[in-house]
């Protein structure tokens, strides 16, 4: 069974016809050619497919495209303002927070989600005072970024980059 959907992907309106069992990740990559989100594990365990859905970080491998009709999707490719990279992308470059780069688009989108959530005062499980403001310590960053794996092990530099991005 097919379904007709419309997504706004990185600022461009895209209409497409999908089998209703197509994941959002496959629709982005194979249907639209938006290849920034990566298919790592395809089971919600690695975070390489993370994008922003209506501004919130989300994995795309365990959700069907048809359920996201009308959604604003921002992939890592859509973060830059023209030639100017997003500050989090700049921080990843500055801190050398990658080696092979496969997980990086997901890491960057996730990091932006982390910064927004912390700014909104949302606690994490390592936040001592659930009702107070959030200070993005390295422990906080590590906990909040735990949904993004990096097989190259660039974690130390990723924590640095997210910390820089918070400034």
């Amino acid at each position: 069974m097919d379904g007709e959907i419309e997504l706004r992907v990185d600022g461009r309106r895209r209409r497409l016809r999908v089998d209703t069992r197509t994941t959002l990740l496959d629709a982005l990559r194979d249907g639209i050619g938006a290849n920034a989100p990566k298919k790592g594990c395809d089971h919600g365990q690695c975070g390489a497919c993370t994008v922003l859905l209506d501004g919130r970080r989300a994995i795309t491998c365990l959700t069907f495209a048809v359920a996201h009709d009308g959604t604003e999707v921002t992939t890592a490719e859509g973060l830059a303002d023209g030639e100017r990279l997003h500050p989090v992308q700049e921080a990843f470059l500055e801190r050398d927070a990658l080696q092979c780069g496969f997980c990086t688009p997901g890491q960057v989108c996730s990091a932006i989600g982390v910064l927004d959530e912390a700014a909104a005062g949302h606690p994490s499980v390592v936040t001592e005072d659930l009702t107070g403001p959030v200070e993005l310590t390295d422990d906080e960053i590590r906990e909040r970024m735990s949904g993004n794996l990096c097989r190259c092990g660039a974690y130390v530099a990723i924590v640095d980059a997210v910390r820089d991005g918070a400034r």
């Binding site: 919600g44 975070g47 993370t50 859905l53 919130r56 970080r57 989300a58 994995i59 365990l62 959700t63 996730s110 989600g113 982390v114 959530e117 606690p123 994490s124 499980v125 659930l130 909040r144 735990s146 949904g147 993004n148």
Partner: peptide, 19 residues
Amino acid sequence: YPVLARALLSGASGQIRNL
């Protein structure tokens, strides 16, 4: 209900809890 907030926050990952 801090017991509930902490239980939720100890499950899955940020980008899964958003879904």
